[in-house]
Design a protein around this nucleic acid. Structure first.
Lengths: 175, 175
DNA sequence: CATTTATTTCATTTTTTTCTGAAGAAAGTA
DNA sequence: TACTTTCTTCAGAAAAAAATGAAATAAATG
């Protein structure tokens, strides 16, 4: 998959879209395949089955399956009710605000919780230092980390606000 | 380096701090070594030379050299004027707000610029579509991406604000 | 329930990223 | 200048992350 959609039936525009999504998803720390799958679905006028992905993107069955799962989990795609076949079809959830925001918020939340545990542990360690000038130094340092972690928690809702607020929704939800 | 600072002369608290930084830096997409170097310097009461790092963290000369360079570049450490020796010594820049913020803002800025180029290309591609219903579909899709990209640009200064404002500085700069 | 078709799982392979250390600059010293 | 010490570079090694595909499972059909 050098340039998305060269050896297969993707139009140049669709290729651009796939690349776009690969980049967007990489920004969230997700692998190329996942971005390309979402891109492919996003750029398809009709619901997409796993088969279309392996063919259209030249990726393996395994990757397609795992990628779809991940995308389902954070609601970037949704099942499409297609006539006839026994296949599962999917279409794109097009409001990035929602799922990108939720994803980032989740990640950050987890990170911050973990961080708070750590600063607590540090506070304990502090109490075991006997040397006085060492103690002062480390208190300063640890203090800063605690402050940072508190501040991060304050920022969290702002991030949520940016992505998930009513305003944000309005700005992006007028299909 | 299983648990930071086990085989070497790091106190448990210092080990915690190193781990903390490894995590913080990984959040920014930077490798473990860089985080651990910053952590080591941050957790040192005295200026640190390259030698201390290779010894104290058990990392190679190459890693230490490269890591220090990176940290210098985005101002996470600064040279310390140490008596006597011909060695270079460093100490930590302790206001994360500044350097983490600047780093993230830089990354995002670059990302957004690139994204804008892409949406422009897409707009061009759009004009070459003849089929009418296809055209409508892709216009909708591309529109959304453009909107998102515009919105990202609006958000950028807010990010800057969060990290780099006077207020943020005050909140973190009272050593 | 046997058969065909679609999906999931996961051990292995491939690709990408990060780390290492020896060679060689650079900078200081006698 | 010859020698020592410190730092940088970069080709190759090691580790980590992602992708593959074959076997197992599930789901549908006659």
């Amino acid at each position: 998959m050098r340039q998305a959609g060269k050896e297969n039936g993707l139009s140049p525009l669709q290729g651009e879209i796939v690349d776009f999504m690969v980049r967007l998803f990489r920004l969230m720390g997700l692998p190329k395949t996942i971005g390309s799958i979402y891109g492919y679905i996003y750029a398809s006028p009709h619901p997409v089955a796993m088969d279309d992905l392996t063919q259209g993107l030249g990726i393996s069955l395994g990757s397609a399956s795992q990628g779809l799962r991940t995308l389902k989990v954070f609601r970037a795609i949704k099942p499409a009710y297609e006539q006839g076949g026994r296949r599962e079809y999917f279409e794109a959830e097009t409001n990035f605000q929602q799922f990108v925001g939720a994803f980032l918020k989740g990640e950050l939340e987890q990170y911050i919780e973990n961080t708070e545990k750590r600063t607590k542990r540090m506070d304990q360690q502090l109490s075991e230092i006997s040397d006085l000038s060492d103690k002062e130094f480390f208190e300063k340092r640890v203090k800063r980390l605690s402050t940072m972690s508190e501040r991060a928690r304050q920022i969290l809702p702002i991030i949520g606000e940016i992505f998930l607020s009513e305003e944000a929704a309005k700005l992006s939800d007028h299909e």
